[in-house]
Amino acid sequence: MNRLIHAELVKARASRTVRVLAVLAPLTCMLWAGLGVALLGLEGRMPAEDRIRNVYAMAQQAYLFTLLLGILGTAGEFRHQTITWRFLVTPDRGRVVSAKLAAYGIVGLAVAAVSAAATVAAGALLLHLGGHPVTAPGVPAALLGAVLAVTGYGLLGVGLGALIRNQTAAVAVALIWFMYADYLLTMLLPGLGRWLPTGAARALAGMSMENAELLPAWAGGPLFAAYVLAAVLAARLTTLRRDVT
C-alpha cells in the first residue's frame, strides 16, 4: 500500500496542474482575507469578534483547489486512459483508489496548511494596517477547522472522480454542486442546509452559513467523512467494476 501512495505522490509532484492549483489556493485565500478586512469597516449586525474570526476562516476558500486536485488525480486517469497501466500494475482496483485517498489526503493537507498560513499572514497584516484588533477568540479553532475541511474536500474529489469517470462531467458536477446547488438548496429548504456537504464542511470550519443553523464542529467532520465514504463506496460498487476498454 505504501508504494502505491508513494507512486501517487510521485505523480502529483511531476504534474504541472498540481503545482498551479497548489499555488493558486493560498493566493485565493489571501484575496478573500483581504476582502474580509475591507468589509470590516462596514456596519453590520455581526459582532466585531466574529468578523475578525471570519477573516481567518477564509482559509477554507482553498477547498475548491483541493477538490479539483482530487478529481483530476482520479478522473484524469480515465481521461488519459492511464488507468489501464495502473490496473495492470495493481489489479485490485479498490487498492488503487485507497492509495489515491491517502495521497490526496496528504497533498490536500499540505495545500490546506500552506493556505491557512497564507491567510494568517495576509489577514494579520491587513488587520494591523487597518487599525483593527489582530486576533479574536476562536481563531485557532477556525484555522484548524478550515485545514480539516479543505483536506476533506480533496478526499471528496477523489471519491467523485472515481464515481464520475468523465473528468469534464466530474468537474462540472462538483463546481455546480459545491459553488451553487448546496447554497440554493439551503436557501429553499433552510432545515436541509446543515446536512449537505457544504453545511458539514462549514460547520467543521467553524463558519456560519446564511439561512442555516449549522451542526456543531464535532458533528460536521464525521458527516463530511460520511459523504466521502459514500462516494467511494458507490464507485467501488459501480464504476470501478466496469470494463476498462
Partner: peptide, 10 residues
Amino acid sequence: AHLEILRTAA
C-alpha cells in the same frame, strides 16, 4: 515520470 510512477507502484 510516467515510468517512475509505475515503477514506484510496482
